[in-house]
């Protein structure tokens, strides 16, 4: 507090202005989509002329959108569950055990930055293609799990570091069996990490574009790509309506997280 106050007022005012500009910059492109969804004009403009729900009807009754929305939801839930299970076990091994090749595993699992997504996308297309998994649900799951796993491992490594190893020992000394220790001791203690990992993983997967772009095909397209394809052919506010629905769902999610754990706590 005091170090902020020790800055001369000119700097503090400048700081406040930058904060204000950044907040507007971050929120404006999101908020502007909402009024445009109600525009009667068949083009996307702002300010709007007239009020209508027809773009929402258009979005909701468009079979491709519905199908891709549920596909995206299913893929992100399955990829997240796999990431949590595989990532939780691996994070435990990374924190508690020492084994040969640990450094390599850490490098691969904790550094999603190392392979640019386009490299991963094209190589994965070949691998999945040779396995006959292109344009299939399992193929999409594999692709998305590769994207989400590093984030899940990272979140859970942090939580395992904060769990006292003596707790497991105590449970074991008292005669608890392996599965019981995991179920009754580790998983409950891991809950904040699991939650953070799940939320990150769900968001990453639902939004994934680059890798899916090469894996999807007719009848098996995720929502972001379906939306992108739509804009290649149409310029009406249907996309605004879909976006408004997504923003509404995101707002619900933020609200739920804020009420249950607190966003700040989740990300710290």
């Amino acid at each position: 507090m005091d170090s902020a106050r020790s800055l001369p007022s000119v700097w503090r005012i400048l700081n406040a202005w930058i904060v204000g500009i950044v907040v507007v910059f971050l929120l404006l492109p999101i908020l502007i989509v909402i009024p445009s969804a109600f525009n009667t004009d068949p083009t996307v403009t702002f300010p709007i002329h007239g009020f209508t729900f027809k773009w929402f009807a258009n979005a909701i009754f468009r079979a491709e959108f519905i199908r891709s929305f549920f596909l995206s939801a299913a893929v992100s839930v399955v990829a997240t569950l796999i990431s949590l299970a595989a990532g939780g076990l691996a994070a435990y091994a990374i924190v508690r055990r020492s084994f040969r090749g640990k450094a390599i595993l850490e490098l691969v699992l904790l550094s999603p930055l190392i392979f640019p997504s386009i490299v991963l996308a094209i190589a994965l297309t070949m691998v999945l293609g040779s396995l006959g998994l292109l344009r299939t649900f399992p193929g999409l799951i594999v692709a998305h799990t590769i994207v989400t796993l590093p984030y899940a491992v990272r979140a859970m490594v942090g939580t395992f570091h904060s769990i006292d190893p003596d707790l497991e020992e105590a449970a074991a000394v008292l005669g608890a069996r392996r599965v019981f220790v995991w179920r009754e001791v580790l998983v409950p203690l891991l809950r904040p990490g699991l939650l953070a990992a799940a939320i990150f993983s769900l968001i990453m997967s639902f939004d994934e574009f680059a890798v899916s772009f090469f894996v999807v095909g007719p009848g098996m397209t995720t929502l972001p790509i379906e939306l992108f394809n739509y804009t290649e052919f149409y310029a009406d506010p249907t996309i605004c309506a879909v976006s408004t629905i997504l923003i509404f769902l995101s707002a619900l999610a933020v609200f739920a997280i804020e009420r249950t754990v607190g966003l700040a706590k989740l990300l710290s």
Binding site: L27, P29, L31, I32, V33, V44, S243, I247, A253, A264
Partner: peptide, 24 residues
């Protein structure tokens, strides 16, 4: 509130945000 404003874009789909920039 500023913190919430910083986190909000992370949760909104990138496609939505790209569309917002197109409108702007």
């Amino acid at each position: 509130l500023v913190f919430l404003a910083v986190l909000t874009p992370l949760i909104v789909s990138i496609v939505v945000r790209m569309f917002g920039w197109t409108i702007l």
